[in-house]
Nucleic acid binder design. Structure first.
Length: 572
DNA sequence: GCCGTTTTCGGCCCGACTGTTTTCAGTCG
């Protein structure tokens, strides 16, 4: 049993209990337990006493034990027998929560989306208590969009739009301060919309200016403190702007940066001190006094907490521990170890890539073109690799203060063997192995295949370990705990691929790999053009979200230390 | 269901908005 599976069962239990109409605090207790399991530093199967997890008491601990032992929960089975399986997914409809779903089920016998559609079309919903014509129309709209999964925008696409909008907002004379907030500020891999917090004494004027921007295609909401619009700026995205008084700016920025879960922890913390936190400030009910702040740092200070950077605000322990890690920064990064050239499917020469890297201030790079089996990408034969090595040597002779390593991104073949024999690998400075075929094999086959590659002493790094493509392809069905364990045992480093579509390993796995297994990682762009080296920005952001420090990432090593490590992996 | 240097009972984060109501429940972030 993996922590992800256990957490999923606890979440389902919470959802079902909520639909059943259980005490909301009890429901929340199960949600908290699910979070605690996800964020536990101890591997879940090594957890002897679940009640040691925060928010887990006797009751939930017993449920956890039962699930660990039997793989299921009697309580959950009972509710499943009581309530139709189609109900939980109805929560995805905007405006529909557990209470309304229960009414629909009880009064109309609605058990799923199809029956709801029929009830709405027959006009039967509007007569229910708490419902009306407007609500029925909104439901009809939600049902119409049911199958159009809202695709979240990639961070890398959202960033330039946010930057343009930020500049635009700054140009409005009545605007005193502007910051982007929300998941963009937390640098999540995808964002749903763009949030801005604006300080102004004249909210109505600013709101007017925003709705009048030429890129605005639709005004969704236009109130005194909030404007929501759809904009078309290369991509169509919703923009929410919150307008607050200047003295409220910092509290509002913190509030709208989130995450929701982080905010909840912050408010609990304030409550322990007898205060109340909202988007308007920290309120002391005893003295009837409101504290406001000039910088976020002051706000955390007031609560007796170390400053938490936006990337960590996910309630993964950042509010509960006395000292936070000194996160990796772009200035710590010394070289990119995964990129392609014209030798396979890249667009530039070795020298062009090297010069681009040097302009970024790097001390080294590794050229890692594809291996022979990957025909679609013009993979290199052993002979090609020899000739490429000659070219790399020449480039190294011409460059000053920059080392180009000769590497390869070698396919792990569907049968688990590697694409070159050891004699070829030992000639290379650095070997990355990765899976590009046979994605749909079963978990056991895929996992063994990857572990076999890690056991080869010549393999230094596993690239994009789960193979997911955000919004496009799910991760391979790997047992990542076994992969982590093998990485630890063999000293193999797992990659955080900084391609904005991959960002794989993701933040959550990075934190787990570091804390539970003591792993180190490599962050690389997998660039196929010189411009793509700039993707390292979102890679570093993801690493920060994964709580990584410079020491956890081999790309922060000096060239000498890196060479030592490369040799050491081979038993040198 | 969980939790406790004010507590073993009575709380559990906070406020805005919507649509339903005529003072508020439900939903959302």
């Amino acid at each position: 049993m993996r922590s992800g599976q256990l957490a999923a069962i606890l979440k389902e239990l919470a959802d079902m209990m909520e639909l059943k109409g259980e005490n909301p605090f009890k429901v929340n207790a199960y949600r908290r337990a699910a979070r605690a399991v996800e964020n536990s530093r101890v591997p879940i199967d090594a957890l002897e006493r679940p009640e040691e997890l925060p928010g887990v008491g006797k009751g939930t601990a017993a449920v956890i034990r039962e699930i660990m032992e039997t793989g299921q929960s009697k309580q959950l089975d009972e509710i499943r027998n009581l309530l139709p399986a189609g109900l939980p997914e109805l929560m995805r409809l905007p405006g529909l929560g557990p209470k309304s779903i229960h009414v629909l089920y009880r009064e109309l016998g609605v058990t799923g989306i199809e029956e709801l559609r029929q009830a709405v079309e027959a006009g039967r919903v509007r007569h229910l208590p708490g419902f009306g014509e407007k609500k029925e129309r909104n439901l009809a709209e939600g049902i119409r969009k049911w199958n159009k999964r809202p695709v979240r925008t990639l961070l890398i696409h959202a960033l330039p739009v946010a930057e343009t909008l930020e500049k635009r907002l700054r140009q409005i004379p009545q605007v005193e301060r502007v910051e982007p907030a929300g998941s963009l500020r937390r640098r999540k891999e995808t964002v749903k919309d763009l949030d801005f917090v604006v300080a102004t004494e004249h909210p109505a004027v600013v709101a007017e200016r925003i709705t009048a921007m030429p890129e605005v295609t639709q005004v969704l909401n236009h109130g005194e403190t909030k404007v929501s619009v759809m904009v078309e700026m290369g991509l169509a995205i919703q923009v929410d702007v919150r307008l607050v008084q200047p003295e409220q700016f910092v509290s509002a920025l913190h509030h709208f940066t989130g995450s929701k879960e982080h905010n909840v922890r912050i408010r609990q913390r304030a409550k322990e001190l007898g205060w109340k936190v909202s988007e308007y400030g920290i309120f002391d009910p005893e003295k009837e006094e409101v504290f406001t702040f000039r910088e976020e740092r002051e706000m955390f200070d007031k609560l007796g907490l170390p400053f938490v950077v936006p990337e960590l605000r996910e309630d993964r322990g950042e509010v509960d521990i006395p000292t936070l890690p000194e996160l990796l920064g772009i200035e710590d990064y010394r070289g990119d170890l995964h990129m392609h050239t014209r030798w396979s499917d890249g667009s530039a020469t070795v020298e062009e890539m090297a010069i681009a890297a040097q302009k970024r201030g790097y001390a080294y790079i590794a050229i890692t073109d594809h291996s022979q089996s990957l025909k679609v990408a013009s993979g290199l034969t052993a002979d090609d690799l020899k000739r490429q090595r000659e070219e790399i040597d020449q480039v190294n002779d011409r460059l000053d203060g920059m080392t180009v390593l000769a590497g390869v991104e070698m396919d792990i073949l569907p049968d688990g063997s590697l694409d070159y024999p050891d004699e070829v690998l030992q000639e290379l400075d650095l070997v990355i192995a990765s899976i590009h075929s046979g994605f749909r094999q079963d978990e056991e086959t895929l996992t063994s295949r990857m572990i076999a590659a890690m056991e080869n002493p010549y393999v230094h790094i596993i690239a994009h370990p789960t193979g997911r493509l955000i919004n496009r392809r799910d991760p391979y069905g790997l047992d990542l705990d076994r992969v982590f364990e093998a990485a630890k045992r063999t000293g193999t480093v797992l990659e955080l691929n900084a391609n904005p579509h991959r960002l794989d390993l993701n933040d959550w796995y990075l934190k787990r790999g570091k804390e539970e297994y003591g792993l180190r990682f490599s962050i690389n762009t997998d660039a196929h053009t010189p411009e793509m080296l700039s993707h390292i920005g979102v890679g570093i952001a993801t690493a920060r979200r994964g709580w990584l420090e410079a020491e956890d990432v081999i790309n922060t090593y000096s060239i000498d230390r890196l060479k030592d490590w490369l040799a050491q992996k081979r038993g040198g």
